[in-house]
Write a protein that binds this DNA or RNA. Structure first.
Lengths: 163, 163
DNA sequence: ATGTGTGCAAACGGTTTGCACGTGC
DNA sequence: GCACGTGCAAACCGTTTGCACACAT
């Protein structure tokens, strides 16, 4: 992808502009966390980000990464995505998008889908002022489907042993 | 709501049938956790459930509540719903439904909405076999909207102080 | 009777906090 | 220069685990 590098640089630029506009000091650490986050297409945990950042900034502390991510979440630079049975995960993709979640292993992927984007959202509901919405699709990923198949096979043979 | 009690009893019955069908021993603790969960319309944390259960079953241990909830999640009696920046939460409502999430305080509510139920889901996407889907609406709840209004007021007055 | 669930206490791991120092603006 | 961000280490807290005993089937 030839356009990736310039795009990343542009993202970094707009990140800096964003920070300055809010009088939020642009520190090396924040820049590094932002870059690490933007470089990923998945939903890393704080610790994965920490590891990524450490390759560029070995002296960074885990605490700082947590704090920066918290700040990002609060300011809308990244969002923390939820995920049952796992530690907090972050997503640098702030554009409207949806999620695929594997009900077996919990793996999650972003999903761009124009049809889902078009669903009409209520603007107000149950006292909430609705800002936006996204669709969570639950399903079984290909790895788990395979694993399940073999598990079923072994269950069946175990059942046969019992007879 | 006159129909509530009998409905709850029926839910409990079908829970027991469900357990027996799967050779899952029906213990006092499981029954109590199920009742506590079913009695709530919101998404309690394991600890809130523990507190609820304890009023009926003072000797119960927190560990047991965690284990029972984990079992319920695995068996489809309840689902664990995700929630950034919070400990695991559970939802006894296994029927198709959607969620309202407050982006400020994280409060979450179930939302029944026939129009949202009708959105067409892809059956297969990115290697996932899609089973179902639900819509997460993000917004600001009434409490936070009020709080925000007063915060904005005080920010403005602080800004005025600075001049 | 036997497999499974439960209670307890201790371990675990991700996250937060208090404080002194360093850095961006 | 001042406010705010950072690093460190310790505290915190939700959750899990190992084990002996109890209970449902």
């Amino acid at each position: 992808m030839r356009t990736h590098q310039p795009f990343a640089r542009e993202r970094l630029r707009s990140f800096e502009r964003f920070c300055r506009a809010r009088r939020l000091p642009v520190t090396v650490q924040r820049r590094a966390v932002f870059e690490a986050l933007a470089a990923r297409g998945d939903h890393p945990t704080a610790d994965q980000i920490y590891e990524d950042v450490r390759t560029k900034l070995p002296e960074v502390s885990r605490t700082t990464v947590y704090r920066v991510l918290e700040t990002f979440g609060r300011l809308g630079v990244a969002q923390s995505v939820c995920h049952p049975g796992s530690s907090a995960r972050y997503d640098a993709n702030m554009e409207r998008h949806h999620h695929l979640v594997c009900v077996r292993c919990g793996k999650m992927r972003d999903l761009a889908d124009a049809a889902l984007d078009r669903i009409p959202l209520p603007s107000r509901r149950c006292g909430f002022r609705v800002l936006d919405g996204s669709v969570y699709l639950r399903g079984v990923c290909s790895e788990c489907r395979d694993a399940e198949r073999s598990a079923r096979r072994s269950t069946r043979s175990r059942a046969e042993e019992k007879r």
